[in-house]
Design a protein around this nucleic acid. Structure first.
Length: 588
DNA sequence: CAAGGAGCAG
């Protein structure tokens, strides 16, 4: 009797309703602290409600409670019930950590906790994102044994699990044999066909559907647009769609943006009845990915003007725009803005900032941020190594690589590209070659064409041209034009006419002999005074209608971004400075 | 006494 009234008091506890309305990290932490003070967390009901509230909020952009925190809360529940286990599995499944979701699921079974029909949809989702593993089949067996396969949530989960693991036929069989299939079953099946590239089948099902909702349309629009690049067909569907929701607008805009068609993307964006952060992010990212970072910055400013609060995704977009532009002031401003507005800083954002600082040449800011990070990803290390390398600190880059190795950080093929490039810039031939050799044996990473390219560059720049040629000719894959290109560049620096001619011949065979190649070759001839050959090349070039391409660059001055094109005389003050500089140089 | 499956942004 006493316990019922205690539970009732708990249920009516105002802290719990506060918990439901919590929106930020600190709100949650405060409520958590109060619950601990009042010794309420020991109650299963309160503890599982706390866990649930935290997991609910973990999708929100203003909350970044770490996985460790969520798991700590879970571990503090004395005897978690089915609901708590479901909650933690759901959390991991939703935040795309399928391995952890499956780990908790297997612990749940080991502890003899009953599973129910709320358990399986998430477990199946986790299985679906790990194709190639057999868990899905086992879970299917369990579902059948428990009699859950007539639950439409569970059955639909099975359908998409099979489709995602590459067995669409089986998914289709489950779909066809399902008497009480609903709209989601249809959508799952259509999405299944789209995800394995059978868009024709998807279209057939779409046409045969009894009724459709926004999901159904979005799957096809997304399928035609991003998966196969047929924006025309996607647009037809988009225009024919009755009630468009935000997602459809996003799919369509991103379809255009993915193909670099920023004009139509922008037009649709402007026509949107309402926008959220994602809408802005798509546009910003589109401009960043297609070489118009200045426009991306502009859009970001407009976004702030419209009172839209950026989240971490839009932040990453605008930071990499600053990186591309070398716009340090703007980048620092964004960094400051994010801090001031308590927009969360995760590894991705911090890595983008490091990259930006590095590209802007601000090594100390990059280093400071890097040293302060408590969690680093492969990308973080890679960005740091590349940054040190291109800024002329090859030795430090190699040191950082060794530190990475010592700390047992995960490495990928890009880590090696980074460190090899750094060796090239610093002329550390022996070290670079040694690391290249250790790639396969010590790190179990097979060198790709790019890695051989680095090696060729490394040797070529050090003047070891014949060894470089030897690498190209003995590597296990077909040499790409970039390889011969870098050998050619090395021949220019080290004045080697023979190998230059060999390289150009190879480039010609590969169909990669653009104007740059011939300009380089004729420069080599000119330096050796071989004027006949110079004229031969010039004639060949004009016969083919080749011209030197226009050089351009973009810089930031006082927070404003300017673009310069070769031959542009609109910035007279710069010419004045250049003029005085070259006079000074001439006079010393 | 809380909860679930399908589509979108880094």
């Amino acid at each position: 009797m006493a316990t019922t009234s205690f539970s009732k008091r708990l249920y009516q506890n105002p802290l719990l309703s506060l918990l439901q309305n919590a929106r930020t990290n600190s709100q949650i932490l405060q409520i958590h602290a109060q619950l601990i003070c009042r010794a309420l967390v020991s109650d299963l009901f309160v503890a599982s409600r706390l866990l649930f509230a935290i997991c609910e909020l973990s999708n929100s952009s203003s909350v970044d409670l770490t996985v460790a925190y969520v798991e700590l809360i879970f571990s503090q529940i004395h005897q978690p019930n089915t609901f708590s286990w479901n909650t933690i599995i759901r959390f991991h499944s939703r935040t795309s950590k399928p391995l952890r979701a499956l780990l908790f699921f297997s612990q749940m079974r080991k502890n003899g906790i009953f599973t129910d029909n709320y358990t399986y949809p998430f477990v199946l989702k986790a299985c679906a994102s790990m194709p190639g593993r057999r868990e899905g089949l086992v879970v299917h067996g369990e579902v059948v044994k428990g009699g859950f396969d007539e639950d439409s949530f569970v059955r639909n989960g099975l359908i998409s699990m099979y489709c995602r693991s590459g067995d669409v036929q089986l998914g289709r069989k489950l779909f066809d044999g399902f008497q009480s299939r609903d709209l989601v079953s249809w959508n799952s099946m259509i999405a299944g066909y789209v995800s394995c590239g059978e868009i024709g089948e998807a279209q057939k099902l779409f046409d045969a559907m009894p009724d459709r909702d926004a999901f159904s349309w979005a799957i096809l629009i997304d399928g035609y647009g991003k998966k196969i690049g047929d924006v025309g067909r996607a647009r037809e569907l988009f225009d024919a769609m009755p009630d468009r929701d935000l997602v459809c607008w996003h799919s369509m805009i991103d379809g255009y943006a993915g193909l670099g068609m920023m004009g139509p993307a922008r037009e649709l964006f402007e026509a949107m009845p309402e926008r959220n952060v994602i809408s802005w992010s798509i546009l910003i990212d589109g401009y960043v990915r297609h070489g118009d970072p200045k426009e991306a910055l502009d859009i970001f400013q407009q976004m702030l003007h419209h009172g839209m609060k950026p989240d971490k995704v839009s932040a990453v977009g605008v930071i990499s725009a600053c990186a591309q532009l070398g716009a340090l002031d703007q980048g620092r401003w964004v960094h400051f803005y994010l801090k001031k507005n308590r927009i969360l800083f995760d590894v991705v954002v911090q890595t983008a900032l490091i990259d930006m600082y590095m590209k802007c040449g601000s090594l100390d800011l990059a280093r400071r941020l890097f040293d302060s990070m408590h969690e680093r990803s492969v990308v973080t290390w890679n960005v740091m190594i590349v940054g040190l390398g291109v800024n002329g600190y090859g030795g430090e880059a190699v040191e950082l690589f060794y530190q990475m190795e010592k700390e047992g950080a995960l490495m990928d093929d890009l880590s090696f590209l980074a460190v090899l490039t750094a060796c090239t810039h610093a002329g550390l031939v022996a070290k670079g070659w040694q690391i290249f050799d250790r790639m396969r044996s010590d790190f179990r990473i097979t060198p790709m064409a790019e890695h051989y390219g680095c090696l060729v560059d490394l040797l070529g720049r050090a003047g070891r041209l014949h060894e470089a040629r030897n690498v190209i000719e003995t590597m296990p894959m077909k040499p790409t034009s970039t390889l011969w290109g870098s050998l050619l560049a090395a021949c220019r620096t080290h004045r080697c006419v023979d190998l230059a001619e060999v390289s150009v011949e190879q480039l010609k065979n590969l169909g990669a002999d653009d104007s740059g190649v011939y300009v380089l070759l004729s420069n080599i001839y000119a330096e050796e005074g071989m004027w006949d050959d110079v004229w031969r090349i010039r004639k060949l070039m004009s016969a083919r209608g080749m011209k030197k391409e226009v050089g351009r660059c973009v810089i930031e001055v006082n927070g404003e971004v300017h673009e310069f094109v070769n031959g542009d005389v609109s910035h007279l003050e710069i010419f004045a400075v250049l003029w005085s500089l070259s006079n000074k140089v001439a006079s010393v």
